[in-house]
């Protein structure tokens, strides 16, 4: 990895949810995976996470994004991984 984008100030935290956690989130939001915003599997953040977990992240996995928000302080969003 030439440059770790996750260390950049403007890049929010990305967390890979376990399937169980993901199902919990989906149940709480009452949505299917296809209704979540998307993130491409080729995204640098995903590639970083793949390095962290040590295996490829499959399409359909759910990513939790935690970022600073101008209005809400800290804001949590979710994204589903899609093919690149």
């Amino acid at each position: 990895m030439a440059f770790n984008v996750m260390e950049h100030d403007m890049v929010p935290e990305h967390h890979l949810l376990s399937e169980k956690e993901a199902d919990g989130v989906l149940a709480e939001l009452r949505v299917g995976r296809e209704q979540l915003p998307k993130i491409k599997s080729g995204d640098p953040a995903i590639r970083f996470l793949e390095e962290v977990v040590g295996e490829p992240i499959a399409e359909g996995r759910v990513i939790k994004v935690v970022r600073l928000s101008a209005t809400a302080g800290v804001f949590v969003a979710y994204r589903v991984v899609v093919e690149r």
Binding site: L29, Q35, L36, S69, F75, A77
Partner: peptide, 17 residues
């Protein structure tokens, strides 16, 4: 959400105000 019921923002304006 949009017409396909896909989520655009998890909370309106992030703070819901």
């Amino acid at each position: 959400r949009n017409t396909a019921k896909t989520i655009i923002q998890f909370r309106f304006g992030e703070d819901g105000v």
